[in-house]
Amino acid sequence: MKKMILLWMIITVGCSCSRKNFETTDLSSQETNGVIYVNDSRKEIADIADSDIQKIAKASVALIDKENIQEDGNSVSLHAQNLRQEFNLCSNQRYAEQQSIANCSGILISPRHVLTAGHCIDEATCGQYKMVFDFRHDTRFYSPESETYHMPRSHVYSCKKITARVTDVGWTAQDYSIVELDRPVTDRAPATLSTRSLKSQESVFTLGYPLGIALKYAHGKVRRDLNANTYLMAIDTFAGNSGSPIFDESGKTLIGLLSGGESDFTYDPQYSCNMIKICPSEQCLGERVFKTSTIASILKKLN
């Protein structure tokens, strides 16, 4: 599964930001998405005081390979290698001990539909991934004793079919999939779509699963409006954030999906491990964000 995603990354001009299988020790040259812009803004959702963001976070979806989900009656458990093991991440890096479980991120856009990046899922992989709500690193869902995440089985949904999908090659192309779920979601509200255009330096935030770990909040800014399909942004995202919803900070409405960007890591030869890449202001290319306003007419028909 990860090999297919890696192939998609190789043939594009930019890079994908979905998880994949890293087979080298030095990952600094790998074309993934992810970087810290000046300071690491990632936070656990439980640490966000804004009630509106907490509500939106309930609509966030982790795309998880069904092989990483164990069912036990009315509950499920999630367990995988941590970031130090999976990516040879240096032990002094943030979240090094959290487990890399999710492959991509997404957002609920109607009671029956999830929106994610086009390179994350297609008809061939529809049956492979589960859509999981509330994959969070807090005491409600995580047991430090067993190092396992637990949640009700009702929080896990299957892909019934792909309603629409486009994944074009290039940094200014469309990249989205609309996933129809196997049943309606009744215990949380879909995200609200915005059709307005953002200007340079406007503040934004995202909710997603960086490097496959539990849900994180991160904020950033618009660098520039590239074309009708794409924003260029400085926002702290990584592999696993593909399909992460981007919201304007003022209105807290959905304005885009993360598609690709900078590489994740720099290599530390002294300790033979990978460090999270940090970009001083304006010194890195930025993150590619697909404008959801370009498919507003499609999304509105789903409600």
Rank of each mutant, 00 (worst) to 15 (best):
K2I: 04
K2C: 06
W8K: 15
S18R: 01
F22G: 03
E23H: 12
S29L: 12
N33E: 15
G34Y: 05
K43R: 13
D47N: 10
A49S: 14
S51M: 05
A57K: 04
V61W: 11
L63F: 07
D72V: 11
F87T: 04
C90A: 04
C90W: 13
N92K: 13
R94V: 14
Y95R: 08
A96T: 14
S100C: 07
G118M: 07
D122T: 10
E123V: 12
A124S: 15
V132W: 13
D134N: 11
T139K: 15
F141D: 03
F141I: 02
E147L: 10
T148G: 08
C159V: 10
T167G: 10
G170E: 13
T172P: 01
Y176D: 04
P184E: 11
T186F: 01
T192Y: 00
K199C: 00
L211G: 07
H219C: 02
K221V: 07
D225I: 02
N227E: 04
N227C: 07
G240D: 10
S242M: 01
G243A: 08
D248A: 02
E249Y: 02
S250A: 13
S250Q: 13
S259Y: 14
D268A: 05
N274G: 11
K277H: 08
S281H: 12
Q283M: 13
E287Q: 04
F290H: 05
K301I: 12
